[in-house]
């Protein structure tokens, strides 16, 4: 702050100047973000209401424990930590782009915008993998006295209450051949890795002997609302990231064409930056509500 600031501070409301000392578009971006905060807030609070109304809610450490290329190794929170750091890093590159914009340094703005766009794309790719893993990864679920296969979708999920091992043993004897083949293939006991086509020819009781129940973690069905809230809210956030990447690409193109140099200011980069930081801000709370608590 320079001395001009203090000289003018007392006369903000005397007319002739904007009392907020902010360009119109930037102020409106702030008000848009405030309204968007209420949209996200309402979604997350609705999730909280439903969660508080349930006796049982899935443990995030159980749901989010996979990492690309590591199979069934139990790595709770590892992948989402990576996603969080990608987003924090891309927020830093964005604020550095805004900083270079203040100095009207076109090359600097382009360099940092490019890194921000790459960060956004990396985050979206991570989210695509995570969703794919949750939607296609089938787990054994205890339903009506037998074991069925289910993945996490809008209609249900396999993250319910833990089932007693003795009950699971009993349920396996009445479960379908297909289910047993899947479980024996995905969760074999030490040293009993058998090819899939050989497993398909095995009788049910032999398959049951191969399944490692310690690893298969058979549970009941979880609260139905869990899937809808997870995909709805992380999807809405992902959509914001996606539109942020598109906006940043447009800003990068405009910078490259010298549009902002001709205008004499890089205010558009600041406005895109506000939106991008907001996306990071929302992730702080999505991360909190779905993965940490």
């Amino acid at each position: 702050m320079s001395s001009t600031a203090t000289a003018q501070q007392t006369k903000w409301w005397n007319g002739g100047r904007s009392p907020f000392n902010l360009e119109y578009g930037k102020l409106m971006m702030w008000y848009f973000l405030m309204s968007d905060a209420f949209t996200f807030g309402a979604f997350l609070i609705s999730y909280g209401t439903i969660r508080f109304s349930q006796n049982f809610w899935p443990d995030p450490n159980v749901v989010f424990n996979a990492f690309p290329g590591t199979g069934h190794t139990n790595l709770p929170l590892a992948f989402v930590s990576l996603m969080t750091f990608i987003l924090i890093a891309s927020s830093v590159t964005m604020v550095l782009a805004v900083h270079e914009g203040h100095r009207s340094n076109r090359a600097g703005v382009m360099k940092w915008m490019l890194w921000t766009i790459l960060g956004g794309i990396a985050f979206l790719s991570c989210q695509a993998w995570e969703w794919h893993h949750l939607i296609t990864g089938e787990h054994g679920v205890f339903v009506d006295g037998k074991i069925e296969l289910a993945s996490q979708t809008m209609g249900g999920n396999p993250w319910g209450r833990h089932v007693d091992p003795a009950v699971v043993q009993q349920a396996l004897t009445v479960s379908s051949h297909e289910t047993l083949v899947h479980l024996a293939h995905e969760y074999p006991k030490e040293g009993t890795t058998v090819a899939l086509d050989a497993l398909e020819k095995m009788p049910n009781d032999q398959l049951t002997g191969i399944i490692n129940l310690e690893h298969a973690h058979i549970r009941e069905k979880g609260p139905i609302a869990f899937g809808g809230y997870f995909f709805g809210i992380t999807g809405f956030h992902g959509f914001h990231v996606f539109s942020g990447v598109i906006i940043n690409i447009i800003m990068l193109t405009m910078t490259a064409k010298g549009v902002f140099d001709r205008r004499g200011h890089y205010l558009m980069i600041e406005k895109a930056g506000l939106y991008w930081h907001f996306v990071d801000l929302v992730w702080v709370f999505v991360f909190l509500c779905f993965y940490l608590v």
Binding site: W12, F20, N21, H277, L292
Partner: peptide, 23 residues
């Protein structure tokens, strides 16, 4: 701790802390 993170993002990265108090 999450609220602290939110404060730093808004105040430093979004420069809200540098704006005029009324705004």
């Amino acid at each position: 701790l999450s609220l602290a993170k939110a404060f730093y993002i808004v105040s430093i990265f979004m420069h809200l802390g540098d704006e005029i108090r009324n705004m």
